[in-house]
Nucleic acid binder design. Structure first.
Length: 1183
RNA sequence: GACCGAUUGGCGCAGUUGGCUAGCGCGUCUGCAUGACACGCAGAAGGUCACAGGUUCGAGUCCUGUAUCGGUCACCA
């Protein structure tokens, strides 16, 4: 076996190993084995990476940890499903594609939007561009995951916008809509003026910004006819008791001062508010203010919300009171708080901005007046200009309208995508009522009771799914819990093109802006009756849901009495159509003048369904087929089985030219393709009767007789797909390439039968903390809501949530493109190999919130790397060489019956003990998600135990010892299995070689052969309790510490490693050691161990408190050097003795500490004293 | 502002119910081509566990406070 190269070169093995895994289908999960009780399920859903970019090191960490869990459980005999997939990442992807297009000099989204507005079909064109991007990145991400060794069930890969996910989205939306948990509302939303879409609350990140407080003066006026100017004078104010008014000339126009950070919004002010307790409030009661330039006269309202300045009774500890003037400008259409004040006082809402946040008089603002000079300016320019204008204008020819500017640092919400300040913007959006008990309450109750801190929504342990979701580490449960406490309804509509389009039709174009002029609904009324009847009929058939929304209140059309129909507001009616392919319903609704909402859903809506859609919901009850049912001949080549309910034969074959017609055509061509080309068959299909399937399950037979097929009304079509490659078909000299799975999916076939029943709830969700709220919570809500039964919450989507650390660079900064401190996993795979990367990542994973990785730039390649990966490389290389050595020692071994324990030598027994202990440690680490412990235990077993001690100890004897050879073979095999989850490639490679070595094995260590021919499918080592041998551990420990003492002595005296020395021990010790002395000789380079006194020069060392000697160190021994060394050690020991004496003389310790503890201390004290004596004796000898 | 973390040799980190004579890897120093491995072997040096109090026979570990650094949420008068 010396044909193996000296160093492990990953690139020579990884591609071959990957192919081996693919070919063996070792990662394919079979729900049948779970449903039949053959195996317990272990399920992990990949957090779907965004198709925006290639994977980074954070993904490498995330997926490595999942793979460790998944591979270990697969080996432990679980039927293991790791579901892969990618996320369409709506806003992120659309933004990235737009940017790339513009960088390439092509038109961006703005141009497409303009064309679309002009009636051109530009939307589809743009979406196609994004699709192309998605295809490219989806492929790249998949390749990267495969390169990382991820053992996903690749035949089941999902994408959040594929047909199966789309079906889940439609079903989910429809049900929430029908149940009143989705509504349309006009409110202030977080508006991103760059991408021009609404954002959810948690897509807004606040950042501190250096801004200013601007103090603006608004003139006070009396109510007057429009255009008249009737100022209030200071004299009047003084007469009404306005404090300080008398300081101004009595005839002068009076004003009030407001403070704001956003002066440009004054254009939309519709009131000024004052606290009723403010001493000035009564004085100005009934007066108005007039907005400069705009000329709008607005009321002064009294509201408790307004903070009074300290001067007028405000709290001096309140920072706001220190800055406030006591008068607050109220701009209901541009501030959340003002919106609420506006609601309380029934104020007008004037939107002064266009969707790009420039000042506009086209979106609801009419009384522009002299303020037209601001129209068209950006927010920033408008602010500047407002300040300039206020500075330039004066009251009474003396006082500038701008009273003051003070610097002010404050937090401003920014879009998490475009990073510009978010504009609170008035618009019509769709909301999901997550505050409803069926969503929020269900999510709170799912959390493990032990991890809860409050009792709201307390779990009911009798309900399945309550109190079961557990966070690791537990502190993250708090993040989850408190987020729900402060939850507001979730804005789910986005003004984007890339995403799941909202399946709602209505009469009005969705209104973005503040003003809405209803079209004339009255004309519809007389002709409405039959249409309404048809709508109600469709609704009763469960195909649509029609609801009239008034903010969060929804009134279903079915509940509207006929006499109320006359005044029914059709403009507010929304019709949700369940099925995308229900063209009849859609055509009918559109014939009434309804149009589909142009918006798409928040990307997290489909992410929230990930645990449902990937497992086949809502069609989770599709029958399962055995490949043999479809293809009686050869089922071994079947990759996946797809099925679809097709109804009748007529429905199935359809009409030529329609989608279903294309289906049967293509199926026939593909089925018979191999007959023409002479290749392997690519698919087989059969039709079944669902009644037969229900009655007989996998014993049901396909329908073959044409009569049977034509009479059946419950046909199910099942397709067995035999290839994963795209298939080329030449038909009438036209070449078409079919991606069979994609083709089947687009025709409504699914390969998900049995998944939900077998694999939900999943075992663990492994993710980073940033998406606990965005994703984790929403998945819990949706799973429990949609799997509701008997009015009780349904099962949750996962038992455990493991939140792993985030990787930062050496300075604690986030890795990012802009900082240039990112490390590309593919670069590391290139330079160090996949396993090295994986080992290092696992080893780094502690339960802290961040882990640091020093980043270095490799000047030759210009790529970033980290010296930390050397650790992993060294480890893999160590394994490689240990295996190389072991294999060379195993040449010529043959199989036989397992070696009984009695035949094993001491190192054998000890190694097996170490394997058993490590196995237990690893299993424990997996259940606790303590990955560093996992890696460290592997490291110690391989390096410290197997290489440093076992291999060294057996070197002289193994070739002649059948027991040692058997243990070596079995031990290495067990180690490969234990390390495989973390470093799969190198272990698989070595296992290939080790598989060629026949050996009898050892009793008590069970190594189940591979189910699918590769180590990845082999059994986890099973260690019988008999392997734990404490006597062997103690004996080896003694050998080890004696050898260590001797080695230290040798090093102190600079004895050449090759020189064999003589060790002199007490007669009793020599006798006690017996044959174990041989191991000491091997491990410490000793020629002879004897009870005789040294003849010539010798040095002393202490072992077990006794003075021992070593001779033949060199031709002469340096006594002074030895004296110095002994002196240092003596000082150390004396200090230690003092500590121990102090402890033992402490009455509290002796009385209160556990007896075992005290005895141990006494023992320690005795040993220390003995050592001291021995050293003193030797020092005496030396003089 | 509220909450959640972190602070342990030069660097990166362990240290799970207090029992520690504080571990590991990298780096440093010494010696070494020894029957797999120099991506290695045998040794060594290097830490008053951020600081101040407290609880305890005993504190890196528990409590209180302070400082510094991260993170999350709130706050745009």
């Amino acid at each position: 076996m010396t044909d193996l190269p000296k160093a492990y070169t990953p690139a020579d093995h990884e591609p071959r190993v990957r192919e081996r895994w693919d070919d063996s289908r070792a990662f394919h999960a079979d729900p049948g084995r779970v449903l039949s009780g053959e195996a317990r399920p272990y399920t992990v859903l990949i957090p779907p990476p965004n198709v925006t970019a290639a994977l980074h090191l954070g993904h490498a960490l995330n997926n490595t940890l999942q793979d460790v869990l998944v591979r270990a459980h697969r080996m432990k005999g679980y039927e293991t499903l790791w579901m892969p997939g990618t996320d369409h990442a709506g806003i992120a992807t659309q933004t990235v594609v737009d940017k790339r297009l513009r960088e390439a000099g092509e038109p961006g989204i703005a141009e497409y939007k303009r064309r679309e507005a002009e009636g051109e079909p530009a939307r589809e064109e743009f979406v196609a561009k994004v699709q192309a991007w998605k295809d490219e990145y989806k492929a790249r991400i998949t390749d990267q995951l495969k390169a990382m060794g991820c053992s996903c069930d690749w035949s089941r890969q999902r994408f959040t916008m594929d047909e199966i996910c789309a079906r889940a989205v439609r079903e989910a939306f429809f049900r929430l809509f029908k149940d009143g948990l989705i509504y349309r509302g006009k409110r202030l939303v977080n508006w991103d003026p760059v991408t021009q879409t609404a954002l959810a609350d948690d897509e807004v990140e606040s950042r501190d910004v250096d801004g200013h407080f601007y103090f603006l003066r608004y003139p006070l006026v009396h109510e007057a006819a429009p255009g008249d100017h009737n100022p209030v004078t200071w004299e009047e104010l003084a007469a009404r008791g306005y404090p300080g008014a008398e300081e101004h000339p009595g005839d002068d126009e009076a004003w009030i001062t407001i403070a704001t950070t956003r002066p440009e919004t004054y254009l939309g002010d519709t009131a000024v508010a004052v606290n009723p307790k403010d001493p000035r409030a009564t004085a100005v009661r009934g007066m108005k203010v007039q907005l400069p330039l705009v000329g709008r006269v607005i009321p002064i309202v009294e509201d408790d919300y307004v903070v009074m300045p300290v001067k007028y009774g405000g709290d001096e500890n309140d920072p706001t009171a220190l800055m406030a003037t006591g008068f607050l400008k109220v701009t209901p259409a541009h501030y959340q708080n003002d919106w609420e004040i506006g609601n309380r006082h029934d104020l007008e809402r004037i939107n002064i901005m266009a969707p790009d946040a420039s000042i506009s008089d086209q979106h609801g603002w009419e009384d522009v007046g002299y303020a037209h000079i601001f129209v068209g300016l950006s927010r920033k320019d408008a602010r500047k200009k407002v300040v300039e204008e206020f500075q330039a204008r004066t009251l009474n020819d003396a006082h500038p309208l701008l009273e003051d500017i003070k610097p002010h640092r404050h937090a401003v919400g920014h879009s998490y995508r475009s990073h510009v300040p978010v504009e609170p913007y008035l618009s019509d959006q769709w909301y999901c009522k997550v505050t409803d008990d069926r969503l929020r309450g269900y999510a709170q109750r799912a959390l493990k009771t032990e991890q809860r801190t409050s009792q709201t929504h307390a779990a009911d342990t009798r309900i399945e799914g309550d109190s079961d979701v557990t966070f690791y580490p537990p502190r993250y449960a708090k993040t989850y819990e408190t987020w729900h406490d402060d939850l507001r309804d979730w804005c789910i509509s986005r003004q984007l093109w890339w995403g799941h389009r909202i399946p709602v039709w209505s009469l009005r174009q969705l209104e973005r802006e503040s003003h809405f002029d209803p079209p004339h609904g009255a004309e519809l009324k007389s002709t409405m009756r039959p249409l309404v009847d048809r709508l109600l009929e469709l609704e009763r058939g469960g195909r649509i849901s029609a609801i009239r929304h008034f903010d969060s209140i929804g009134v279903p059309l079915v509940s509207v009495r006929p006499e109320e129909m006359v005044n029914f507001d059709w403009q507010e009616l929304s019709v949700c159509v369940l099925n995308e392919w229900d063209s009849e319903a859609i055509e009918f609704v559109e014939s009434m003048g309804f149009t589909q909402d142009p918006d798409v859903l928040d990307t997290w809506f489909s992410s929230a369904l990930w645990a449902l859609s990937t497992l086949g919901w809502p069609n989770a009850d599709l029958p399962r087929f055995h490949p043999k049912q479809i293809d009686q001949g050869d089922d071994s080549t079947v990759n996946a089985v797809y099925a679809k309910r097709v109804g009748t034969w007529k429905d199935f074959i359809g009409v030529d030219g329609e989608k279903s017609g294309e289906l049967i055509d293509t199926l026939l061509v593909l089925r018979d393709l191999h007959k023409k080309t002479g290749g392997e068959p690519v698919l087989a299909y059969q039709l079944f009767s669902e009644a037969d399937l229900e009655a007989n399950g996998q014993a049901a037979m396909p329908l073959l007789a044409p009569d049977d097929i034509q009479q059946a009304t419950d046909l199910v079509c099942a397709v067995a797909v035999k290839t994963t490659e795209p298939v080329k078909v030449v038909k009438r000299s036209v070449e078409t390439v079919h991606d069979i799975p994609a083709f089947l999916l687009s025709h409504g076939f699914q390969d998900t039968a049995g998944l939900l029943a077998a694999f939900n709830p999943t075992s663990v969700l492994c993710t980073a903390r940033e998406i606990i709220t965005l994703w984790v919570s929403r998945m819990v809500m949706f799973n429990r809501y949609f799997l509701e039964h008997d009015g009780k919450p349904g099962q949750h989507p996962f038992h455990d949530v493991f939140i792993h650390a985030m990787i930062q660079d050496g300075e604690g900064r986030k890795m990012s493109k802009s900082l240039g401190n990112g490390v590309d996993p593919l670069d590391i795979i290139d330079s160090h190999g996949t396993d090295s990367m994986r080992f290092t990542l696992v080893q780094m994973t502690t339960n802290t919130q961040d882990v640091r990785m020093p980043v270095e730039r490799d000047e030759t390649t210009g790529k970033n790397t980290s010296p930390k990966f050397d650790l992993g490389r060294n480890f893999c290389n160590k394994l490689w060489n240990a295996a190389r050595f072991a294999l060379s020692m195993l040449e010529g071994t043959t199989a036989g019956t397992p070696v009984p324990r009695g035949d094993l030598t001491l190192p054998d027994k000890w190694l097996l003990t170490r394997i058993a202990r490590t196995e237990a440690l690893l299993t424990d680490a997996l259940t606790k998600y303590t990955f560093k412990e996992f890696a460290d235990a592997c490291y110690d077993l391989l390096w410290r135990d197997f290489c440093d001690w076992y291999l060294e100890a057996i070197k002289p004897t193994v070739k002649a010892s059948a027991a040692q050879q058997a243990t070596l073979r079995a031990g290495l095999d067990a180690i490969l299995r234990l390390l495989h989850p973390m470093i799969p490639f190198v272990t698989e490679t070595i296992a290939e070689k080790l598989g060629e070595v026949a050996s009898p094995g050892v009793e008590g260590l069970t190594l189940t052969p591979a189910r699918r021919g590769c180590l990845a499918s082999a059994g986890w080592p099973e260690c019988d309790a008999s392997l734990l041998d404490e006597v062997a551990e103690a004996r080896l420990e003694r050998i080890r510490s004696l050898a260590a003492e001797i080695n230290t002595t040798r090093a102190k005296h600079q004895v050449k490693p090759k020189r064999k020395i003589t060790v002199h021990l007490s007669a009793s010790l020599v006798e006690d050691l017996g044959t174990d002395a041989d191991y000491v000789r091997t491990l410490a380079g000793v020629e002879t161990i004897t009870a005789d006194a040294p003849a010539g020069d010798a040095v002393a060392f202490v072992f077990e408190g006794a003075e021992c000697k070593a001779s033949d160190l060199a031709d002469a021994v340096d006594a002074e050097q030895e004296k110095a060394a002994l002196g240092t050690e003596l000082a150390k020991l004396e200090k230690q003795l003092k500590t121990l004496d102090g402890r033992l003389s402490n009455p509290g310790y002796v009385e209160k500490a556990p007896e075992k503890m005290v005895n141990e201390t006494k023992q320690q004290r005795a040993e220390t004293a003995e050592r001291i004596d021995a050293i003193r004796a030797r020092l005496g000898e030396l003089g």
